[in-house]
Design a protein around this nucleic acid. Structure first.
Lengths: 150, 150
DNA sequence: ACAAATCCCGAGTATTTTTATAAGATATAA
DNA sequence: TTATATCTTATAAAAATACTCGGGATTTGT
């Protein structure tokens, strides 16, 4: 039940882009450096995000990447689904094209995995990049408040 | 974000044992046959469950396995934790011994994984083998009702 | 006492997934 | 035209997964 680095790196990279909205294209290299991720590896991940329309690319010198839409229109679930595939604790309850199982109607374990799937999807779809930006702002202000009292 | 066969097979096997509570020990072979799992592989999984006290074993001819406690005292989360390890979408938010990360206090992605972890744990800890037995009974009665009207 | 049934344990292996690395092609700004 | 980027495809090491196998220990029934 672990997320792979694809999902984790992908969310980090998308959040990085969100933090630079309005500053023109951000190069992969700078994202990779800030987030501590292999640039070549990130390249593969962002390729999928681009095909899914979550980011836009601008080629050539001074090029880079931009968010495909406003931060409040990009849910973490959207990112995870592109990079890790449909949310599915088991194949038989995959969000898309669940593996057909002849015992599905009687299967009691199946209903458990459905609940797990839905609870994960609910969390991931309730958080957007905008939410993350707000959280980051909150943490930052709390932090400076804390520093003030020391 | 997939459960491995360990978790899935383990829950199946435990549910099978729950369905035979009060009938004396159930052999691994019969569980494996009913659930369509390799016997040797299941042996490895149940060994862990035994060490965790979730099942008791009786050796020798006519031996087999029994639930370690009442079905309503065994949560699906207990089974999953034994077979798949602590619930943790990422190492940095593992239920036990989370990997230390210097950026933890400022990390916004981390709070996402915490929410995911908690939502999974909530679901898995809210369902017991007893719950599953009740669900199975319900499905069975609905099924016979349906058959009646055909 | 013995055979059959059953649990117990450790080692070995094939497959798949993960996590990259690398080389070179293509596009664009300056 | 050169430097800076993205884009594409291929390769591969490392780790995890999902078994498989062989033999030993324990108990029951004959």
């Amino acid at each position: 039940m672990k997320l792979s680095t694809k999902g984790r790196y992908g969310v980090k990279a998308m959040f990085d882009l969100a933090q630079h909205v309005g500053e023109g294209p951000t190069s992969l290299k700078s994202i990779a450096e800030r987030q501590g991720i292999s640039e070549h590896y990130l390249e593969q991940l962002i390729s999928g995000l681009r095909k899914a329309g979550l980011v836009k690319s601008i080629r050539g010198a001074q090029g880079g990447y931009l968010l495909g839409r406003e931060p409040d229109k990009i849910r973490i679930g959207d990112i995870i689904r592109v990079l890790e595939g449909p949310i599915a604790p088991t194949d038989c309850v995959s969000e898309e094209a669940p593996e057909i199982c002849s015992k599905a109607e009687f299967c009691v374990t199946r209903t458990i995995w459905e609940k797990v799937r839905d609870s994960i999807a609910d969390v991931l779809d309730s958080i957007t990049l905008e939410t993350m930006l707000e959280d980051a702002k909150k943490i930052e202000s709390e932090r400076s408040l804390y520093m003030y009292y020391i």
